[in-house]
Simulated assay, not measured.
Amino acid sequence: MFPTIEYLEWIAGKPDAVAHDLGSSDLRGTFQRQRGPVPGRLAGLEDPPPERDLPTQLAQLYDVDEDNVLVTAGATTANLVAVATALQTVDPDELASRPQVLVEKPGYEPLRATPRGLGGRVDRFLRPPEDDYQLEPDRVEAALTEDAVLVVTTNRHNPSGRLAPLESVAMAARAANEYGARLLVDEVYAPYVTDPEADGPFGGPTAADIENTVVTSSMTKFMGLGGLRVGWLVADADFVERARSVAWHLPVLAEPSAALAARALEHRDELLPVQRELLRENHALLASFVDEREDLSGSVPDGSTFCFVEHESFDGDELATLAWEEYDLLVVPGRFFERPEAVRLSLGRSSDHCEAALDVFAELLDSLS
């Protein structure tokens, strides 16, 4: 029985229905939700030659063979396929209990709801706010059990925005391997860096070359092309082969979306600087705002355009409800990310839009003092 994913049901339609959006984490900038067949920023660009299709481009981007790449209809599908594939590696009849899927806390709701829906036993390891949401391999190792099949984490951490060093990711992967499990790293926010790394996909770090690791990502967040619903999974060839068999149970990626994603990757040298500049501007806006508000506690990780903030007197639901009902402003209650005392602010629109929305949020906060 698949559990309800409350966050996705709550946020559906809200970013487009509100005047001031501080809830969208994808870097769409001035572009609204895609309504035509071709996203505006891709119109007029030439397609790559046929031999440079999407799987080929992604393999080159990650410096792996095409056998290591599975293209899916979005990162959510990639994560579902990864979890289902990992669960298939064990015979439930040989276990004392259901196979363990160990998921970070706080975390993104689908990453714990999906394993439950697929029959896994979801246990948690902490990335607590008092430790700045760091990924601590010792916490992973302490929470693993002999029936573990998968450890699930995000980098950047969703929802805090904290970026873990790859050494910590590698140590977590080794800890998982000692129990016969793999590490799944959702990297949709990994490119959110102001100073890009030359050798990483879209300028961000990746765990794709770490042994015993499965990486997922998409065109939605940093590239701001959510309307295409293009995601992928990168892992060793044996895992990807099994994942392809699982993926046949799900809708395949539409050919027009694959073609447009390939077009975007073909022109990434001209598209990425625009996204990077939007990231830099919105990060600076958010960091400055949080730093200047004495009635808010919280911090903005370097390079992140999203973070948690707590008000000194009101919890996350109270702030979010007041923002929506009285100020036509979208902020996300932290309860969806296991932080009910906080709200999550996300700056994905144009810098002008975000600056104006922050002014409205400041007006709301001033009214509470």
Rank of each mutant, 00 (worst) to 15 (best):
L126K: 02
T89I: 05
L102Q: 05
R268C: 04
F336E: 03
Q32R: 13
P49V: 12
L8P: 04
V18L: 12
T194E: 03
D123I: 06
L265F: 08
L253M: 04
E187G: 05
S97V: 03
R268S: 09
P191S: 11
N155S: 12
P49G: 13
Y62Q: 00
T321K: 08
W324V: 05
A247W: 00
S218F: 00
V332W: 01
I210N: 11
R41V: 13
E109V: 12
T4M: 10
L279H: 01
S367E: 05
E9H: 11
F336T: 11
L183E: 05
D123Y: 00
D238P: 04
D132R: 13
Y133N: 14
F239W: 04
V240N: 06
L233E: 09
Q134I: 07
R139F: 07
P92N: 06
V169P: 01
E211T: 12
L126H: 02
R112P: 07
I5V: 14
L368R: 09
G334Y: 00
L225Q: 06
P37A: 15
V300I: 08
P205L: 06
Q57P: 08
N158G: 12
D315R: 12
A262T: 08
T194A: 09
R268G: 01
N177L: 01
P50E: 06
N212F: 00
T153C: 12
P301S: 05
D93N: 05
E178F: 04
R33T: 10
E281R: 15
R121V: 03
G348Y: 03
L296E: 00
E136F: 03
P55I: 05
E9D: 15
E310H: 13
R33D: 06
T76C: 12
P115H: 01
S218Y: 00
A148P: 06
R127I: 10
D328Q: 06
N68M: 10
A73D: 07
L95E: 07
T206P: 00
Q34L: 15
S217V: 05
P115L: 06
G180R: 10
G36M: 09
L80S: 13
T145D: 07
